[in-house]
Design a protein around this nucleic acid. Structure first.
Lengths: 269, 269
DNA sequence: GGCTTTTTGGAATTTTTATTCCAAAAAGCC
DNA sequence: GGCTTTTTGGAATAAAAATTCCAAAAAGCC
């Protein structure tokens, strides 16, 4: 109760977690609200936070003291010092880039950077952890992984295959080079990763279909749960990719693919 | 002078820019300091900002009014409210993902998302606008673009080629499939884009060397100005890609490549 | 160089915000 | 059910911050 005040945000979080249980009703409301709105501490007043937590200001004051601070101000100082908004000089710079005129290379770069960043943020927010774990489990116990992705999904498919290979996971990239078809390489103990975005590529769907009818598990990486690949897949991973102009950044898709590959590599030991 | 107060941060910035010239000494100090520290407005007091700008608090108050606000508090409100969509649940969510245990798929995803985001931010901060414009100019007046990038640079090279093709810019991907070599396709009126990261691929360097000795302009996309591709290039674009584990996110490289491709497409009309 | 206008700094004031304290309510205990 | 302890809400107070105002200084003008 009279411990020293947390001096870092990580310390703050663990203190918060350790103190939350065994707190009376009102103080618990404070703890819950603060945990869910940690980011607003730096820019709010006691009254604002208290009303958000639906408690009187005095309750919130007491709560700050329970965490070890002398009062609200001391707690706020921690967050104000650490405050680095999602736009330090980064946003300023983006703005400068864009200001150099619509259509200029710099402005385009700014747009694509922004599209990539948004995609990644949305991925973090919307990623389905359960599906991801299922996909890893499924793919980790397969012998060989068959990766397919064409057109704009091709860079992802090729990188995924590259990383899998580096991790000593047997993987075949079905790239349709020379219209050669390796679908007879699909063995029942294998698994398939199919990547496709609207407009969905027939060749990709066809390979997934083939894998499915041979009894291979199929993991689909696509843009929506309504994508045609969904019906063919055992597990579907959706990626909310933000386009700029007609082109998608692929940042989110690559991040997801990398995570998938490394998780598979780890699971296989 | 008595315009309405800015209601968005963009508006704020342009107001600031338009008002800065023709301001007396002290007020100008305010303008400069605020422009450089916009991000701290939300979490500072008048006194703190004033002392940062090395002016008395009253000067800063006057400055707020010149911008159209009734006072400092109104200006601060703009930034405190706008802060909501910076980290709101995104950072919390990332944290949750990571908390699910080191090595878990979710934790890996969080790491790659973070690596990608950092890469993009650094790219925005460090991008060399001049070099980018030069590269676009050089590539826009070439007949055919020869794109080369192997191993981990291959996904980038392939996507770049895909996008160029979509934009009706003639492009050849030198993918070394079947060890076939297209270097005789290099014509003096063409140009070359070579992408390579440490450890630099010999084949990529060799093709760039060839292009150079035939008098083609070479644009290098690489990790450092000291990269071996730099000596072979007419223009070098560096990308500060953040790795996680042994693998790079490629987000920044792809964003840069996309911007390059679209700028070339636009410049060619 | 004197006069007018603009700019400046700081002290005084007002407003807002944080913090304390205590009586009432609730919860726990015998 | 009465007694003790804990928890709570709100009014009172203290502290801090924002804002105003004005006299002095500086700059501009004739």
């Amino acid at each position: 109760m009279t411990d020293a005040a947390p001096t870092t945000i990580d310390e703050f979080r663990s203190r918060l977690a350790s103190v939350t249980d065994g707190l009376p009703k009102r103080l618990r409301q404070c703890a819950d609200y603060i945990a869910a709105n940690t980011d607003r501490i730096a820019v709010s007043t006691v009254a604002e936070l208290a009303s958000g937590a639906d408690v009187p200001p005095s309750a919130l004051m007491r709560f700050c003291q329970i965490l070890g601070f002398s009062g609200f101000s001391e707690m706020q100082k921690l967050f104000r010092d650490a405050y680095a908004p999602g736009w330090p000089d980064y946003t300023t710079r983006l703005r400068n880039l864009k200001d150099s005129g619509a259509g200029s290379p710099s402005a385009l770069l700014a747009e694509f950077v922004e599209a990539g960043r948004l995609s990644l943020e949305q991925l973090a927010k919307s990623a389905d952890e359960t599906a991801l774990s299922q996909a890893v489990a499924l793919l980790a116990r397969a012998d060989t992984l068959h990766v397919v992705g064409l057109r704009r999904a091709y860079p992802v498919a090729s990188y995924l295959t590259y990383v899998l290979e580096k991790l000593a996971v047997p993987a075949i990239l079905h790239d349709h080079a020379g219209r050669l078809d390796h679908r007879h390489a699909l063995r029942p103990s294998d698994a398939c990763i199919a990547i496709t975005f609207a407009p969905y590529s027939d060749e990709t769907l066809s390979l997934a279909q083939d894998a499915r009818s041979r009894g291979l598990p199929v993991v689909g990486i696509t843009d929506h749960l309504t994508s045609p690949i969904a019906r063919l897949s055992s597990v579907v991973l959706t990626v909310p990719e933000v386009d700029f102009g007609a082109f998608r950044s692929l940042s989110a898709t690559l991040a997801l693919s990398l995570a998938l590959a490394v998780a598979i590599g780890t699971a296989r030991g």
